[in-house]
Simulated scan of single mutants.
Amino acid sequence: MSKYTGGCAHVHVTASAEPIDNHECHCNVCKSVTKQQHTHVAFFNYGDVTVDHPEKIKRVPFNAQNPDGPLEICLCAECGAALMLDDKQKRIRVAVPNVMGYDDAAFPKATYHAFWDETKGYAKPADGRPVYDSLRPEFRWPAGA
């Protein structure tokens, strides 16, 4: 059963479960990639996200400052659309709903703010959700494959 679908006309990405983490990300890498001050990000267990045409995916490092890091941006080789973040360690797959072809309104609202840093020059979020300088303290990375 599909809970969430995204992607583009050439590659469809499907999540079959709820996110294991769902936050507004304030990290510099997300800012650089999305050009947004903060970005709604949903982590899924790796096996809960499937792709119908993996042969049509072009992979690029998520963090240009750490090109050997574990996350890669998956792009459609035909149209260049951002599809998902893929974890080389096979722990998670990541959706950025408003950038990766999902219906952002269909996703659960982000439950907290992650990677907020007072040196970034804007006010601390005051929408009632917790604000952390990293992921929420109780988050545990799933085991990889």
Rank of each mutant, 00 (worst) to 15 (best):
H26C: 05
K90P: 00
G128M: 10
H38L: 10
H38N: 13
D127W: 07
T5K: 12
K31R: 15
C30G: 09
C76S: 08
S32Y: 13
D104S: 15
D48E: 14
K109V: 14
H10P: 05
A110F: 13
F43N: 02
G144K: 12
P108Y: 06
Q65H: 12
M84P: 01
V41Q: 04
Y4H: 14
M84V: 01
T111Q: 13
M84C: 10
L135V: 08
R91S: 12
I92G: 01
G7W: 01
S2Q: 08
H40F: 00
A145H: 14
G69M: 02
E24H: 12
P61I: 00
H26Q: 04
Y102T: 06
P97Q: 07
A82G: 05
T119C: 03
G47Y: 13
I20H: 09
W141I: 00
Y122L: 05
R136Y: 00
A95P: 02
P137K: 06
K56L: 15
S2R: 10
P19K: 05
T39H: 06
A143Y: 03
Q65E: 11
P19V: 13
K35R: 14
D87S: 09
V49G: 03
H12M: 12
Y122H: 14
E78H: 10
H12P: 00
N22L: 15
L135Y: 07
S134P: 00
K88L: 10
G101V: 07
H40A: 13
R140G: 02
R93D: 02
A95K: 02
A126R: 05
T119N: 15
L85E: 09
A17I: 01
W116H: 08
H113Y: 06
F62W: 15
A145M: 11
N66I: 08
N98Y: 01
V41G: 01
S134F: 05
C27S: 04
V13W: 03
P97M: 05
H23Y: 15
E138T: 15
V96Y: 07
A42C: 15
A9V: 07
K35F: 03
A81T: 12
T34L: 04
A105Y: 00
D103S: 11
K90C: 03
D21S: 15
Y112G: 02
P61F: 01
A126V: 00
A15E: 02
N63W: 00
Y4P: 05
K3F: 13
I57M: 09
E24R: 10
I20E: 09
E72I: 00
K120E: 14
V29E: 06
Y102W: 13
Q89W: 09
P108L: 07
V11A: 07
R91H: 10
P70N: 10
L135W: 04
